[in-house]
């Protein structure tokens, strides 16, 4: 299947989604019949707590661009909601947050 077919040829989502936006199913059933990819995306969102767009794209084996379109459709139907990533420092380079970096370092060391 051509990747664009899943999204009806569209490569631009109606809402802005980051690769690290976390998606959750709302439990609302869409009123329109869903295509196979939309259904699968919704099922993945419902099956796990707050999966990122990147992870969903990997599991769906579709380009992230296409998955963003599918998810934004599902958002318009009210079937899923998105939680935007909260980057430290509000979006720019944020290495000045020392306590955060120390927590990351601790977490990594615990894995060794």
């Amino acid at each position: 299947m051509r990747p664009y077919t899943a999204s009806g040829g569209r490569t631009r989502p109606g809402v802005a989604l980051d690769l690290l936006s976390r998606m959750t199913a709302t439990g609302v059933r869409p009123r329109v019949p869903l295509g196979a990819e939309h259904t699968l995306a919704l099922r993945l969102c419902a099956g796990a707590a707050a999966l990122t767009v990147a992870e969903l794209a990997g599991q769906l084996r579709l380009p992230a661009t296409v998955v963003k379109v599918l998810l934004s459709d599902l958002m318009e139907y009210g079937a899923v909601m998105a939680q935007a990533p909260r980057f430290p420092g509000g979006g720019s380079f944020a290495a000045d947050d020392q306590s955060l970096l120390l927590a990351v370092l601790d977490g990594l060391r615990r894995r060794l």
């Binding site: 899923v80 909601m81 998105a82 939680q83 990533p85 909260r86 980057f87 990351v104």
Partner: peptide, 13 residues
């Protein structure tokens, strides 16, 4: 549109 905006959400690293 369903957007969750939770200020308590963990930071994204």
């Amino acid at each position: 549109m369903a957007y969750a905006d939770d200020c308590d959400a963990p930071v994204t690293l």
